[in-house]
């Protein structure tokens, strides 16, 4: 068999290392041509593929603790690629790629019904409420590998799919069909100054994500590492973004498990 095995690209974020600095957000904005507006303080109206949440342990001073939780698209696998958002899109503008496990979004096909936003429990999908406008000259910094989105469509993190394509093209030119771990990395992973983000193929035991998470691929990729958890595990969305922490309260704040399975 010459056909390469399917990939399951995923990410594990070490919440004990993440400092909440926002470098991942900015690197993502720069890589993916995310627009900005005069007032972006209302995060529910603002487009940012990566958002850093601030979690609190809810205890009073001086026992208060905080943790930062970066949230890219979770690239849910659901059952056999039946991710919450992909199945609901009426215009086939989003797709679960069985070869990579990446949930894509076709901006030119989306007509802005926002059903996928209602379907996503992670608020990953965001709507272009406004026309994207760059101040004169700043559009020069736009990345030609990623198309600029128009007003009225939904967008979200693509695990920097353009980087995957670029890496794959380069590999093909060199006569290879497989990418090495470091050849394809997302912008946030690469930028993270704390080294808190690890990205790779969950199907590949040689990759660090696999080694950290130890995914139970028969059960939707449930982590076998007890320090690793996923957001809303019990919904059965089977996200491919995992979180690593030693702190119990962080795990509890990140996932509402009434009964542990």
């Amino acid at each position: 068999m010459d056909q390469p095995k399917n990939k399951r690209y995923g990410m594990v974020i070490d919440l004990d290392k993440c400092t909440g600095c926002g470098a991942c957000m900015v690197a993502c904005m720069a890589e993916n041509n995310i627009p900005f507006r005069d007032d972006d303080t209302d995060k529910l109206l603002s487009v940012s593929w990566m958002h850093v949440y601030r979690l609190s342990n809810g205890k009073p001073f001086p026992h208060a603790e905080e943790c930062f939780l970066p949230r890219p698209c979770q690239h849910c696998e659901g059952e056999h690629g039946h991710s919450p958002c992909v199945s609901v899109c009426p215009a086939t503008a989003t797709d679960y790629d069985m070869h990579t496990g990446i949930v894509s979004q076709i901006y030119t096909r989306c007509f802005g019904c926002r059903y996928c936003m209602a379907a996503c429990p992670y608020h990953v999908r965001q709507f272009n409420w406004w026309d994207p406008v760059w101040p004169e000259g700043m559009e020069r910094a736009l990345n030609p590998d990623v198309s600029v989105r128009m007003r009225g469509v939904v967008e979200k993190c693509s695990f920097c799919y353009s980087r995957y394509q670029t890496a794959l093209n380069r590999a093909y030119l060199e006569g290879r069909r497989e990418l090495s771990e470091e050849e394809y990395q997302t912008a946030c992973t690469q930028a993270c100054p704390a080294g808190a983000i690890v990205f790779g193929d969950l199907n590949n035991p040689a990759h660090r994500v696999h080694q950290i998470v130890k995914p139970d691929l028969a059960h939707g990729g449930r982590p076998r590492n007890p320090k690793v958890f996923r957001l809303l595990e019990r919904l059965g969305t089977h996200p491919k973004v995992y979180y690593l922490t030693r702190r119990d309260w962080v795990r509890r704040a990140g996932d509402n498990e009434i009964q542990k399975t």
């Binding site: 926002g22 470098a23 900015v26 720069a30 700043m138 930028a191």
Partner: peptide, 11 residues
């Protein structure tokens, strides 16, 4: 690694 300011330097 790069800090958020460094990553926004193009702007």
């Amino acid at each position: 690694g790069i800090c958020p300011l460094g990553a926004a330097g193009v702007q």
